[in-house]
Amino acid sequence: MAEKQKKKLEVVQTLDSDESCQTFVLHDEDHTLGNALRYMIMKNPDVDFCGYSVPHPSEHKINLRIQSRGPPAADILRRGLTELNALCEHVQNTFEGAVEEYKMNQAMQQSTDNTEPMETG
């Protein structure tokens, strides 16, 4: 219950307040989001370094480190998440389209299979 109220995203506090280099803690996440997000963020040319780690396998959290060439790390993270979200949307639409097309082809093939013996008979 208490966990529900806890924040899912935290920033590791450091002595210097350099906004372009930050480590984010993503609670309740693992390699699934960690690696996908790292890939998207590394595709950003403003990013100097991006990496993630799972501090301990029985703790459900990851540390995501972002070092940029200027813009705040939070903005880089936001852009990465937005791009990953848009990518998923496209994957979903493409996949659904492919399934629909496949099912239509199957149905068509079946109907021609059914009518053929009738024509010859």
Binding site: E29, T32, L33, A36, L81, T82, L84, N85, C88, E89, V91, Q92, F95
Partner: peptide
């Protein structure tokens, strides 16, 4: 895909 979008 929806789960991954939900995480984002």
């Amino acid at each position: 895909t929806k789960v991954l979008m939900g995480k984002c």
